[in-house]
Design a protein around this nucleic acid. Structure first.
Lengths: 160, 160
DNA sequence: GATGACTTGATATAGTATAACATTTCCAAT
DNA sequence: ATTGGAAATGTTATACTATATCAAGTCATC
């Protein structure tokens, strides 16, 4: 298990790795890592924290990109849909994936004081509490939400 | 373990129980379950689904309450803070607590088709997958976010 | 009936996200 | 090399979610 977000780490490696993972995945799947999408991912990797869409948009427009919300939301949608970034629901913010390439269920530890977000690779089968203990994070509240299909809708969708 | 939200249940009991639990808790803790707060909880219990703040506000203003957002957000803040309702981050919506009185970490199963939300009493130590399997819910994505204090901020707060 | 804590009223504004449609770019098939 | 279609982007407008602020009212207690 890895935990990224608190403490020291090799940030240039984590940036390069994030970009490379995204490039490779796009090549492999025929996805287009266009200029804007690439730049948003770079920003998220560089800042290494959860950022609001409008924070990112501000940086983009400083750099000559268009300054309308769809510019950033489209890039974020692409990055999130393909696992290169995640949305932190609690913060309405976005963060680069810390485990690119792995298919995983992200688990986030969010500090309410400094807003740092750590992404752990804890599975739902391990105990979140143990993960937190190990790195000295004190959990105060948790959000667990699973989205999918309820029995009724599944039955309606595929009639026997 | 109980799961409320999919399938049949005694809804009048679940409403009455929800109100009584809130009343008792308020009495016990010296909290004021005022007219507006009570009405919002009734609406949430009655509708028995996740509702947007502005949906609730619409009902309130139809009934003669003031129609400004703070009216409903204040009531929701109170209900959520005291465990009588929960916020579903994924939907930006609110739902009455299905296990009033218990102190618990709520776990929500959200149907992407019909938007029904089930609150289970699954603990983080049990496997979410098992809970879902048992009731025939097919999980597609999960959100796990824990908020608290990171090691750095804890150290800064209480210097040795 | 004065005090102070809590609650509500009311106005304004901040923050987050998407709809809709026109235009351009890219790639593949001819 | 052209062209046709899919994907991406530009652009305008708007919808949705939530909070700040300050004034006024309510309630329990002293």
């Amino acid at each position: 298990m890895q935990t990224v977000g608190f403490g020291q780490h090799d940030h240039s490696a984590c940036m390069g790795g994030g970009m490379k993972a995204a490039e490779d995945a796009c090549t492999a799947q025929g996805l287009r890592l266009t200029k804007g999408r690439r730049r948003v991912l770079e920003i998220l990797l560089q800042e290494h924290r959860a950022m609001g869409a409008y924070d990112i948009l501000g940086l983009l427009s400083d750099e000559g990109f268009a300054s309308q919300p769809p510019v950033v939301y489209r890039a974020l949608d692409f990055l999130v849909a393909n696992g290169f970034a995640h949305k932190i629901q609690k913060l309405n913010a976005y963060i680069a994936c810390a485990h690119p390439g792995d298919s995983h269920t992200p688990v986030f530890l969010i500090c309410r004081s400094c807003k740092t977000v750590a992404e752990t690779a804890a599975s739902l089968k391990s105990t979140l509490g143990e993960v937190a203990d190990k790195i000295g994070f004190k959990i105060e509240t948790t959000i667990v939400e699973a989205e999918g299909m309820c029995p009724t809708c599944r039955a309606a969708e595929s009639p026997a």
